[in-house]
Structures are given as structure tokens and as C-alpha cells.
Design a protein around this nucleic acid. Sequence first.
RNA 1: GGGGCCGUAGUUCAGCUUGGUUAGAACGCUGGCCUGUCAAGCCAGAGGUCGCGGGUUCAAAUCCCGUCGGUCCCGCCA
Length: 594
Amino acid sequence: MGDWKRSNYCGELRKEHVDSSVTLMGWIQSRRDHGGVIFVDLRDRDGLCQIVFNPGGNPEIHRTAEQLRDEWVIAVKGTVTSRTEETVNPNLKTGEVEVLAEQVRVLNTSKVIPFLIENEVNADELLRLKYRYLDLRRPPMRDNIIFRHKVTAAVRNYLNENGFLEIETPYFTKSTPEGARDFLVPSRLNKGQFYALPQSPQILKQTLMISGFDRYYQIVKCFRDEDLRADRQPEFTQIDMEMSFVSEDDVISIVEGMTKTVVRETKGIEITTPFLRMPYEEAMEKYGTDCPDTRFGLELKDISSIFKDSQFKVFSGALKKGGAIKALNAKNAAGKLTRKEIDDLTEYAVSLGAKGLAWIRVGEDGWNSPIVKFLTEEERKLLGEALSMEKGDIVFFGADSVETVNQVMSNVRLSLGKTLLLVDEEKLEFLWVVDFPLLKYNPQEKRYVAVHHPFTAPKDKDMENIESSPGNVASKSYDIVLNGVEIGGGSIRIHRKDIQQKVFEVIGIMDDEAREKFGFLLEALEFGAPPHGGIALGLDRILMLLSREESIRDVIAFPKTQKGSCPLTEAPSEVSPEQLLEAGIKSIDREPEN
RNA sequence: GGGGCCGUAGUUCAGCUUGGUUAGAACGCUGGCCUGUCAAGCCAGAGGUCGCGGGUUCAAAUCCCGUCGGUCCCGCCA
């Protein structure tokens, strides 16, 4: 570089810079050598600018220009000039101008790159992750990372202005029962003992409320050792918040205000608040899931009552076992679905646990269906009415246990929504799902477990029934859903020790166990804990949805593969026996057999 | 733990169903020509452990088994 100083980013040059001398530094996107004149597109984080090397100038500079190759790093001094009308490139922000090179310095060369730096992804994801530094040069990835910064900056601004304090909590903390598998960190100073990385700062943010900080937030990494998905990484980032002296409505309205402001400032999009609120029961009933995609209809309808005594064993059998029958009517879609698509959908349903996927097509000459011959006149009539079946419709059925029916039919609904192009991809549909049950019965463990977490407060009116019918107690909790993806959840917490003890009792955490696992929080509740509540938002998922990406990996600079590895750093890796010894742990090759 | 899809040149893919000359294409790369391109153009050229291991066969990129890796989903993720 010598004594050269960069004067501008490549992407910022416009007509008004014409005649000014500039010094640019960046990477060579492409070089077009016409034998005489040579064009170089120079790229930095801000964009592209065309550099022109004319043959009439300094022959030494021209010789250098002939040597240049893609992804070399160069510095160029030159004069910004206007392009002639015919040579303007409307595809570039800087397309009205170009820089006439007067001096050039090669700052570094580059090997031939393993994949092209282009807007469209055409490389295998493994390769992209191995050469992540190159993948991040691609404008869409670069923009995602810059967008991430803009969003976190806007979040911080909003929360700072609303009286929130950003307070850090430790990453080396204590393993807690319930919830996800912990990542463990061995303690060298206390051999045989382990820290756990936090699944979320839940307990400590509540403790901060007891300390009196009143409004806390943190943009913070959380760690969960569970299997990965397109929207799940072992380490991910939460916008974590907690407030004292608040109700559900207070938390909800702060989040709505923040979301509205952040989306306006970073995307220039005006979203409508307040967001729709839907009780959990309704979400499960109409959509079969607690995070419905409400960008399209195609709602599920429980038609169990019609088939209570049906001769059709597939339906009546499911009901006798305590299950349910749900159907959805794809209006006017009979002609849009091929037999192959129906078969594929059936196969998909089976892969989700269904025994099959019954359907009825309403054709010109009546109902066309493999199951219609099993139905009585009366059943057909009731069915037609219940689902408003008309010519051209196609109806799909799920009959199984309630859980399976919801699981299968909610996904069938999403799949149909996609196939039939019912989803407006431009929409941002925010939704609160509220009134979750506090507890649900876990048949494997033969006990009730917390739906959210064990510090969630029950609705006041349900408190008296907590022992008699624990499954029917609603909680002061709320999930926020965007386009069918859960992007956050929270609750008003229990701030009284007697209620906390009662909840522990009902979920089968014994007094001494509770004391051991959460002892300090229980004790802290006895020292003037204020009423408080909060929420945690999944930053990566929000960014994925706002960036229209299919995976959170595309909004994270250095994500892990589905097996939790990082092809760039080659983590995880083996460590030396000395390191293990110091950490006081022993490695075993495989699961012990028993 | 289970199911689906994928793995062939530097890259993206075709070829595999129905085994049979020297495994193709595009982009990229190298060299040459070319003074207004911007996906530059034209000419020439180099480039392959068909993921890995085993099996069937006269013969395997192709069929079978196993395995590794990537990805999507179920379970799991309070």
C-alpha cells in the first residue's frame, strides 16, 4: 500500500464524483482485456466500480494490468470520468462513471478460486463452508451479514431508548434439568466437575430483575446440544429481554414496537401493529400447530363427530382409540393437482407418521375417491356441508391420534400451500400465540412437564385447579410467530416462592432436588422478587425470514453443518491426551454396551 | 435413533433406468488474437481416485452390500 490512503469505497462513486481523483482498494471481480483497452471491475464491501486502463498511458501500468487476475487485491489511483451514453451500465450503481487508472499497485495475488464469486449460489454448501471467507465475498452473503449488523444496531437503539440496560451474563454456568441437552465444559480447577453453556440466560435474567435492574436486554449466544435443522444451530443468538412490574400486554407491546421500528429502519417496510393474537387452542384446532403460517387459509376442520359410528373402519377406528379426524378442503384445486402430486403428498404424510392420506375429488360426475364407497349417504351429506364441498374441490383427510393428525395435516397444509402457490412470499405475517397450557403430560416420563419452562406463571384464575387438573391450567405465556416460524417466546414469571414450589411439586421436582438445581433462584424469590416477565427472540430466524433465506446458515458468518462440524476450522477435533488429563476427563470411543 | 435426496474435471451438471470403444457439456483455468467491454468476443489447449471399501460379472460411473460426507424431514429442541 505504501503511503496510499483509500479515498472512497468502490460502490459509492456517482456522477457527482466526476473529475475527482480517487484511490480505490479492493478485489478484482473480473478483467476484460481487449488487447488495447483493459477493463477491471473492482469490488469491495460497498459494490463494484469499473477501472479503465488505456493503452496510451504509462506502458508499465498497462503491463501490470495485463498480469492482473480475478480476486487479486489491488490499489488504484485515478480520475473519475463520465461514461459515454452508449457505455453506461444500468446494472451497476456506479454504472454512469468509471475510473481512468493513473497508477496501480498489486497488494496481493490470489490462487484460482474454487468457486465463482457470483450472486447466485452454484457451489456445494460444504465447499462454501470450507472457503467461507470466499463465500462471504458473494454480494448476497455480504449483504446478509451487513443486514445482521443493521438489525442488531436498530434493536440496541430501540431498547436503549426505552430504558433497557444491556447486561452480560456468564457463558460458563450451571447445568439445569429440563429442556435441551447441555454442552459441557470441564473444570480444570475442580476435576470431575463441569460448567454448562447456557441454553438461554433465563435464570440469571430473572435474578437481575430481583436485583432491581428493571429492564434488561442482551443480544446473546445460546447453546443447545440437539440435532440441527435448516433453522436450528447448536449455537444461536437470542434477543433476550426481561422487565419488572409488567403484564403480558406490556411485554407484547414493547416487542411490537421494537419489531415495527426495526423492520422500518432496516427494510423500509411498514408493518401493522398490534399483531393478531390467537389462543393456543385455536391454533391447534385450525392449523394443527402452535406456529401457524397465516399467510394463507386452507384451515383444518375437525369432522370427528360425523364418523363416530361409521362403518368405515379407518375413521371410526381412529376415533375409538381416542383420536380425531381432521380434513382440509383445497378449494378449486382438484384440477391443479396431478395424481402423481397426490401420491407424493400421501407418501409425505406417511413419512410423517400417517397410515395413509384419504382424499375426495369433487368432479363433474360426483365424488371421485378411493374411500367414497365406504361412506353412507348421510355421511356424505354431512361431510359435504361441513367442508362446503363444491365442484372442483379436493379434500384431504387425516384420521389418527390427535397428535399424529395435527402433525400430519399441518404439514400437508403447508405442502399444499406451497404446491398451489397460496403463499404470498412478500408478506410478513406476525402472530402472537397466547394462552398456552402451563403443563403437559409426558407419557414416557409418566409426569407433567412444563410446556415453556418451570418458571412460567399460571393464569391467576387457574391457580386453584393446579392440583386437581394440572393439564387444564393456562399460563401467562406468549409465542411470536412470523410466516409460520416460531421466532420467539416468553412469559410472565412466577415471583412468589409458594407458587414456584407448587409448580415444582406438580411436575415432580422434589423439594431437595429443586433446591439443588435451582436453589439460588428459589431463595432469591424470598428476598423481594418483583413481578416480572420477558421474552427471547431468535435473531437468526428473524434475519432468515427478513432476508428471504431458506436457512439460518445464510445469515450466520460461520455456521455449522448438520453434523455440527465447521468445515473451515475443522471443529470439532480430537485433543491431546495432555489436554484431557489437565481437564480431568477421559475419552471413550463409543457408547458403552450394556 | 429413523426416513428421503445428493456425491462424476477447479465448479455446476449430463451419463446410471437397460453394465460394453478413448466418461461428455457449460462455466472457470492456460496460451494466442483483439482499443469500449461489463456473463466481452474469436481460436487453440490442459484438466478425471466417477466420495471410499467390498461384492456380482469376461467387463462396473452404471447392479448389490457396507461406509463416509452434504442436505431436507421425523424423533429431539422446557
